[in-house]
Design a protein around this nucleic acid. Sequence first.
DNA 1: GCGACAG
DNA 2: ATCTTGTCGC
Length: 236
Amino acid sequence: MICYDNLTLAEATAIQNELKSELRFDLAENLDFKTVGGADISFNKGSNQFFAAIVILNFPRMTLQGYALAHGISNFPYIPGFLGFREVPSLLKAWDMIPNKPDVLILDGQGILHPRKMGIASHFGVLTKHLTMGCAKKSLFGKYEEPDLQKYSDSPIYGHHEILGYALRTKDRTQPVYVSPGYGLNVSQSLNLICKCMGKYRIPEPTRIAHEIVNQFRTGYLKEGYHKIPQNPELF
DNA sequence: GCGACAG
DNA sequence: ATCTTGTCGC
């Protein structure tokens, strides 16, 4: 079990720069996935006990197939730019419970839209070597123009002299979300994937449902472990 | 030095 | 992130 407690900021920064050299964006031939995962963390204010959830949805149907719930402890504080050190350890516990990993995982936070290209989605992806991407509700890094008002309008976000991600309007007249690759897929693929994961809300289904379920876990309505949802028999 | 600052 | 009621706008 990896533990990032007791790291100094200088050490954490060094680790990010190290992980950065392992980034890849050429592992996805296409977006022909069978499943997509969503990851989220929840905790009670002032507590160091974390609740982690990773849900698995059928792609592109966006119906729940199963979910893993795990408890975790973290004493690493929340510092913008270092979210991975606080949340990744707990998410890995949930990840390890999953018998069949999702083809791609969407995390609540940034991917390479980060000063050192090591947002939580990239951090998690480099450690697991699985396809990941980030979809954040607020911007952390990069320069961009406001996308148009209607659904699916997007605007590139620049940083390090290149396009790192996109501000995407996922719903009419609502704040955009910020998408970027984590590990394995490229910038345009990350944008396209999020578009294919939208339901009737601003937040894409994977992370939206992960958030819903992790809160039921935190409030005691669901228990730790891997839960499989009965799947309807294929009819054709 | 000042402002910004994922969850 | 979490704690919370009403309220404005489509």
